[in-house]
């Protein structure tokens, strides 16, 4: 199958001071296939949101290439690129409070993109906005309200409507549920799944909640300090993780089961997640890895196949 999106050695670095470079995304190779949900997990600061934003064109790429349907995407987006690519690639943001303009009505928020792209005539805006509000489970008469009149879950529905009104093929969901209460999270997940099926979407689902990512996605990529350390079918990565970091993540993931949790062995891991500044040639996890060896400090491990559709970047995994 030809991938919908292909990332080749994608890098996004930020210069934070003289001679100090933050390697937020550092050489990511990834293929995303049509109609799949690819989950991207990792802890804060690992570069997963930067990766998503770079794919959406919100950041200029430092190096590497991204191909969308075989077409190379521009290194830096110009206004005309946004106009044309926003109909293909859209993003749903983490924070439903800061990602909606408080001075725009719901109608303006949802209609802005399609109007700019010339998709909706001014006479059909009212009907179209109404349709989208109903699709995401809001009422048609909400169109004249402002974002502050909605709860967090409702705002996230607005964010979804705004993104999908552009009729994109590929949607980047950057932690779309982490700001919401448990009882509301499931509502949003079910809504995303329903709309994905209806419009044949491909999703990149970025989150730090392992159980949820495993539930939502077909494949799962684990990111640590700017690079992908494990990639495979969600169940394979979740139930038989190969990379020591993934093992640690899965081992620390609390599950709602008291008997299981109270018998869970505590894995003592020393150290903090380092900041990816001025990375040298070494495994990025070497400082915290229980299985670290000499080779890890002198050679960066690359992703290599360890099973069917299962890839791990570790020197020691068979």
């Amino acid at each position: 199958m030809t991938p919908l999106l292909e990332l080749r050695n994608l890098k996004k670095h930020f210069t934070i001071a003289k001679n100090k470079t933050l390697h937020a995304v550092d050489g990511v190779n990834l293929e995303i296939f049509p109609n799949e949900i690819l989950g991207l997990v990792g802890e804060s600061g690992c570069g997963k949101s930067t990766l998503g934003r770079t794919l959406a064109g919100l950041y200029e790429k430092t190096a590497g290439e991204v191909f969308y349907r075989g077409q190379k995407l521009p290194q830096k987006y110009r206004v005309s690129d946004f106009v044309h690519l926003s109909r293909e690639i859209q993003m749903i943001f983490q924070d439903p409070y800061s990602s909606l303009n408080p001075r725009m009505t719901v109608r303006e928020i949802i209609a802005e993109g399609p109007r700019l792209a010339g998709m909706w005539k001014s006479t059909e805006v009212t009907t179209k906005v109404k349709e989208w509000l109903e699709r995401v489970g809001l009422a048609a008469d909400h169109a004249s309200r402002y974002p502050h009149e909605f709860s967090g879950g409702q705002r996230q529905r607005l964010g979804i409507a705004r993104a999908l009104a552009m009729e994109p093929k590929f949607v980047i969901c950057d932690e779309p549920i982490s700001a919401l209460d448990v009882s509301i999270q499931a509502q949003i997940i079910n809504l995303l799944a329903e709309l994905k099926g209806k419009f044949g979407l491909t999703l990149l689902f970025i989150a730090h909640d392992l159980s949820m990512v495993r539930y939502v996605s077909n494949r799962m990529a684990v990111m640590y300090l700017g690079s992908i350390v494990e990639l495979g079918e969600s169940d394979d990565v979740f139930f038989s993780p190969k990379h020591p970091y993934t093992q640690l993540l899965v081992g620390s993931n609390p599950e709602p089961d008291p008997i299981k949790e109270k018998n869970r062995p505590y894995v003592d891991l020393h150290g903090e997640i380092p900041t990816p500044v001025n990375l040298g040639v070494a495994c990025r996890f070497a400082g915290r890895c229980p299985k670290v060896g000499d080779r890890c400090r002198t050679e960066t491990p690359l992703l290599r196949p360890v099973g069917k559709n299962h890839f791990v970047a570790c020197h020691f995994v068979e």
């Binding site: 879950g153 448990v182 999270q185 499931a186 079910n190």
Partner: peptide
């Protein structure tokens, strides 16, 4: 009960998430 059903189960079998509707 609703809270528990709204969470993904870590078991091998994927059961449907049942949200608590409303607010």
């Amino acid at each position: 009960l609703g809270l528990k059903q709204a969470l993904p189960s870590p078991a091998m079998e994927r059961s449907q998430l049942i949200p608590i509707e409303g607010a």
